[in-house]
Design a protein around this nucleic acid. Structure first.
Length: 474
RNA sequence: GGCGUCGUACCCAAGUGGCUUAAGGGAGCAGUCUGCAAAACUGUUAUGCAUCGGUUCGAAUCCGAUCGACGCCUCCA
């Protein structure tokens, strides 16, 4: 097996990936909070995770990929009066929180399917793991990491050695922060809730009994509880967006390791943001771009997928429609080249293993170097343009590369599809051919315009002409 | 205020000490072909990697300063 190097946020270095169990990889990805649609920035993270997973698979590892659905209990703000996002979303849509959760989880799954993101091995919902979460709090309570305030059960971060190691958090610096609201009852700036009590004056739609009182789990708990349940106390990879580093993942580590006394996760991988000209894309600002918004503008999901491949996952991407246009053009050109290659494949082609191995090696070297997908795409283009490889060798390689890229090369038809051209268009083309042979170019050009107007393109060749549907997508 | 990231051609972007006097894509331009186009093919667009210093036999790559952009410190991918 080839070595895979991954950038570990814990060490801030690229490290060789050594799985806990040989030949296998356990991977947990923080999934969506299903109170609204995913925006295209959210989707970038799932795309990144997909590439990571595909690379592990490509290298022959058996991957167990777990993704959670957060369908409960994140407060809108840190302040006590905050209403949680789920309940807020439900009120906005005039539905129950359960309906909201189901609807948006479903929409999310549709989005990732459109983006050709492989589904996780296992989905898990926060509301279906309340028992596991309570058990984890009990464990922390027994070990003396918790305290109870008027609004919930809290985690005492001062008790945990190395708190904030992942984010290299300067807790002193935080004290000087201006924008942080500080609950009087919290013992430390960084303490966070494990269990929140339901407000006395209002019944929540989602609440459960617990040894400490009726309420709902804190926002970091579910990921600790569920990841350990399905992947074990110590597992290989945990990923998410960079925003999770300082709080969410930091707290997950604190909770999990305090309870088990073991190292929680070996490799932490984080994906950078997608930005707009206004700055970071966010839902709270109101309007935001969804995958559907892009489709409404006439882009295909894979245009967007290709767009995401133009930048390394640890770099910010500036989204603009100009940039998306350039990606779409690139992806269309790519498909046309592949279509052409497919039409050139013959049974007489001899497959030369040395040729194949050279490009295959190059490709693997890129992807295994911390997911250098951008350079891998360059290798893809080199392969397409290479003059020594024959069509079969190229197709062989491209099909292989697509296991990682996920650009659906398999759906691309070989060359022109004759029968898709309507008789009407064929007739016009024949008329034009006659006009041309009579050197009646005015008439010929007129007919060409007519054909164009009907959505087809005519191209002269040495022997005659070719008709092609004007591309929206091949 | 604290922490951190980044600045490579018209645009996106790889490369992080010699293999590169800088991949790949988009866009443009020129040529071949064509009645003219389109497509295709070929060539072309950074002696330079924000700026200024320094280290080194050698730097886009290391160090320092300056300027600029952005992110985090608050739920967030």
């Amino acid at each position: 097996m080839n070595d895979i190097y991954l950038y570990n946020t814990l060490s801030r270095k690229k490290e060789k990936f050594i799985p806990i169990e040989e030949g296998k990889a356990g991977m947990y990805c923080c999934g969506p909070t299903v109170y609204n649609y995913a925006h295209i920035g959210n989707l970038r993270a799932y795309f990144f995770e997909d590439i990571l997973k595909r690379i592990l698979l490509y290298n022959g590892l058996q991957v167990k990929h777990v993704m959670n659905i957060t369908d409960v209990g994140h407060l809108v703000s840190d302040a006590d009066e905050g209403e949680d996002k789920m309940e807020k979303g439900a009120r906005r849509e005039g539905k129950t929180v359960w309906q909201i959760a189901e609807y948006f989880a479903d929409e999310f799954m549709k989005d990732i399917k459109l983006l050709n993101i492989l589904p996780p091995t296992l989905w898990c919902k926060a509301t279906e793991h309340i028992e596991e979460q309570i058990k984890l709090i009990k464990c922390l309570e027994e070990k003396g990491f918790t305290y109870v305030t008027s609004d919930g059960v809290y985690y005492d971060t001062s008790k945990f050695r190395n708190y904030g190691e992942l984010g290299r958090i300067d807790i002193e610096g935080l004290e000087e922060g201006k924008r942080i609201s500080f609950s009087e009852e919290k013992r430390n700036k960084t303490d966070f809730s494990l269990w929140k009590f339901s407000p006395a004056n209002r019944k929540r739609q989602m609440e459960w009994d617990s040894p400490w009182g009726k309420g709902f789990p804190g926002w970091h708990l579910e990921c600790s509880a569920m990841s350990m349940k399905y992947l074990g106390d110590n597992f290989d990879i945990h990923c998410g967006g960079v925003d999770h580093i300082p709080v969410h993942h930091t707290n997950e580590i604190a909770q999990s390791e305090a309870c088990t006394g073991r190292k929680f996760v070996n490799y932490w991988l984080h994906c950078e943001f997608l930005l707009e000209d206004k700055g970071k894309m966010s839902k709270s600002a109101g309007e935001f771009l969804k995958l559907k918004s892009l489709l409404d503008h006439g882009y295909s999901p894979l245009d967007f997928r290709y767009f995401l491949m133009m930048t390394h996952y640890r770099k910010k991407i500036m989204f603009s429609f100009d940039a998306l246009d350039s990606a779409r053009n690139g992806y269309r050109n790519l498909r046309e080249k592949i279509s052409e290659i497919k039409s050139k494949v013959t049974e007489k082609d001899i497959i030369n293993d040395t040729n194949i191995r050279f490009f295959g090696r190059k490709f693997t070297d890129c992807i295994n170097d911390d997911l250098n997908i951008t350079e891998a795409v360059a290798v893809l283009w080199e392969t397409i343009k290479d003059t020594n490889l024959n069509a079969s060798e190229k197709l062989n390689l491209l099909t292989d590369f697509d296991k990682v890229l996920g650009l659906e090369f398999n759906t691309i038809p070989a060359g022109e599809v004759e029968y898709e051209i309507p008789d009407e268009i064929k007739l016009l083309a024949e008329k034009r051919k006659i006009a041309k042979s009579e050197k009646n170019y005015v008439r010929a050009d007129e007919l060409r315009r007519l054909i164009n107007g009907k959505g087809y393109e005519i191209m002269d060749t040495k022997t005659g002409y070719e008709i092609k549907k004007i591309r929206n997508s091949i």
